[in-house]
Amino acid sequence: MKLAYYPGCVAQESGKELDMATRWVCRNLGIELVEFPNFSCCGSGFVDEANEVLNIAINVRNLAIAERAGLDMLTICSTCQGMLTLAKVRMTDPKVKARVEAALKPLGIEYRGTVQVKHLLRVLTEDIGIAAVKAKVRRPLHGMKVGAFYGCHLLRPADEMQSESAEEPHAFEDLLSAVGATPVDYRGRVMCCGFPIQFVKPSTASAIAGRQILDAKAHGADAMATPCPLCHLSLDAYQNKAAKEVHAVLDMPIFHLPQVVGLALGASPEELGLSRHLVPTDPALEKVRPAARA
């Protein structure tokens, strides 16, 4: 299948390893990524707070770029997925639509609303399919217990995001099982990572991240995995601060979603950029039962 690849800002900058892993996995599962150098940032929820209609227009411009090419969009970030979907939903309000079109029409940008925005999680579990992913597994992650961490905007508000469930999703766990890992059930998996207030009040943001990591750890997770690079920043790059806030040793490896899939499909840690993580991932990789290694 062929999709308009919307990597988002973080995967092109500090979260480069997410982009590397996504490209590797897509190449190996027959997903062709078409790139558009004119895509802009989605506003990350912050532009939405400052100016709602501007935020919608920025994202409608992005949607229209893919739509013009006749392609659905692939996102690899819960927040990008949320913002682009939100723009689609808000455009069904005639008043909003009129205001946005008044700004876009003079630029020759036309938007019909036919484009679909799909996160990699959905593409892997629904379009490619769990069975097809499983069939490609060369190195099942048997023995590794992984706590899925969804990221809010992939799930909520559920009526607008058209997500499988606001608080009780299972697609990510299904995918983890398919690649041989053991998913861990814990409340924190659908909670917030704290990232949106990392600048407002770092201590509170890190306390929130710390709670979710502790929760995963208490339920036996060897690692966590997230479909969102902002959650990844909060859980991995700032994990030292989270540990301080919750007064605990965390040492929790945090994978990006396509890294977990890539590992099982046979990618090397180098190809997936694992050395770019702040918290070493080796302890989790060592949990993979030797008998199952290639």
């Binding site: 909520r156 508000p157 949106p196 207030i197």
Partner: peptide
Amino acid sequence: LRCHLCTE
């Protein structure tokens, strides 16, 4: 945090 847990 705009996590929308309240809305759900």
